Computed example of a mutant assay.
Amino acid sequence: MSYYLEPLIGEKEAARKMNDHLSSAWWKKLWKKKTLTAVEELRLPFWCFDYEAVTHTVPEGMKGRIAIEPLSRMNAILPADYEVTYKEEAGMEILETLGNEEAERVLYWELFAKEKRREKNKVSISGRWLVYVPYWIGYTKDAEGLFDILAVDALNGKVDLPMKDTVLHYLMDGREEMKK
Rank of each mutant, 00 (worst) to 15 (best):
A143F: 05
M74F: 00
T57E: 13
L95Y: 07
A90C: 04
R128H: 09
D50I: 04
I68S: 05
E69P: 03
S124Q: 14
A113H: 13
Y135T: 07
W109C: 09
F46V: 01
K179I: 07
K34E: 15
S23E: 06
L5C: 05
M92R: 08
S23F: 04
V131Y: 08
L42M: 14
P45N: 11
A25L: 15
W26I: 08
V58D: 06
Y82K: 13
Y86Q: 12
A103H: 01
I9L: 03
R16S: 11
D81T: 09
H21C: 01
E176P: 01
V133C: 04
R43W: 15
V167N: 02
D20I: 04
G91P: 07
E177Q: 11
K28I: 00
K114E: 12
K180V: 03
L130G: 10
M18S: 05
T166K: 02
K122Q: 09
E83K: 12
K114V: 08
A80E: 14
F147E: 12
V131T: 14
V58F: 05
D173H: 10
K32L: 04
F147S: 13
V39Q: 03
R65I: 04
T97Y: 08
A113R: 15
K120Y: 12
V159T: 03
P45M: 11
M18T: 05
A80P: 01
E69L: 03
A67C: 08
L161T: 15
E40F: 14
E110Q: 11
S23V: 04
N19R: 08
I68A: 01
V133Q: 05
I66H: 01
R65K: 14
W31C: 01
G99W: 01
